[in-house]
Design a protein around this nucleic acid. Structure first.
Length: 264
DNA sequence: ATGATTTGACCTAA
DNA sequence: TTAGGTCAAATCAT
């Protein structure tokens, strides 16, 4: 429990860098919005292009940072082997002795153990995992999350995610948390819903499928105010690839909101 | 000390 | 009976 351990230091610094980048991106976005309101001469065009590049740079930096889970000083091999070896560390305890002793186990020490905390802030919510169940004929479990403020503020927001089947064993070492799917519970009390999913799929760009889902104003809004001040409204025209810790959203090409709404 | 995660137990609907 | 969803004790990180 050394608060000054390399892992703690790295996590703390990483969170701070992400916070700074998010702030910078938001400011750049505001700048671009202001520029878009201005005159449409060639000079403004150049400035707008620069503003967009700044936004893209912030987004890509966030993407790279979020995709980097390696701890400095910890080589890739040991990190992965720890993760792989730890797969059995919890279950290695004699199950018969655990009968009736709920939660009595040796907790795994993996890089993912705390990684998901920050991700839950990225979408504007603070999620707390409350359960996990194995899926029949699937190697990955389904995870259940509720709003952290369920008790404090009566927020009833829930969501769950499950992982897609891997097509080959070669992907065994890829992060199974990526490519996961989120399903929201839209029938809960305390949720202010846009009645639309919060994102459109990159595969839908260029089709009309996304048209009624553009400008969702953040999609699902938790009944509790965002305590972190992070703006959940994202302008997908600026974000090419925003990778959260658990979920990876992609926009294959930069398009303006106008282009998207026009179905281009 | 506090709050989050893990995971077997428990509940319920099909 | 079974699978999905939730609960909660034990454990862990900060």
């Amino acid at each position: 429990m050394a608060a000054t351990s390399p892992e703690y230091s790295w996590c703390t610094k990483r969170k701070r860098v992400i916070k700074e980048l998010v702030q910078g991106r938001d400011i750049a976005t505001q700048l671009q919005d202001l520029l878009l309101l201005g005159k449409n001469n060639s000079l403004d065009h150049g400035v707008q292009e620069l503003a967009m590049k700044i936004c893209t740079s912030f987004s890509q930096s966030l993407s790279v940072l979020n995709s980097c889970v390696q701890i400095p000083g910890d080589d890739l091999g040991s990190g992965f082997s720890d993760q792989l070896n730890s797969q059995d560390s919890g279950e290695s305890v004699n199950r018969s002795t655990l009968k009736g002793r709920r939660g009595c186990y040796k907790r795994r020490k993996t890089l993912d153990s705390r990684r998901s905390v920050s991700s839950k802030l990225e979408d504007g919510y603070s999620w707390r995992k409350y359960g996990q169940k194995g899926i029949l004929n699937s190697k990955y479990p389904r995870c259940y999350f509720r709003c952290t403020y369920k008790h404090e503020q009566g927020c009833q927001a829930l969501k769950q995610n499950e992982h897609k089947e891997e097509s080959s064993d070669e992907q065994l070492f890829s992060d199974p948390l990526l490519d996961s799917e989120i399903s929201w519970k839209d029938d809960v009390m305390g949720l202010k819903l846009s009645d639309k999913p919060p994102m459109f799929l990159s595969s839908e760009i260029g089709t009309n499928n996304h048209k009624d889902r553009v400008d969702t104003s953040g999609g699902y809004l938790c009944g509790s105010p965002n305590p972190y001040g992070i703006d959940v409204n994202m302008d997908m025209s600026l974000i090419r690839s925003l990778q959260f810790d658990n979920w990876d959203f992609h926009c294959d090409q930069i398009m303006s909101s106008g282009e998207l709404q026009a179905g281009l």
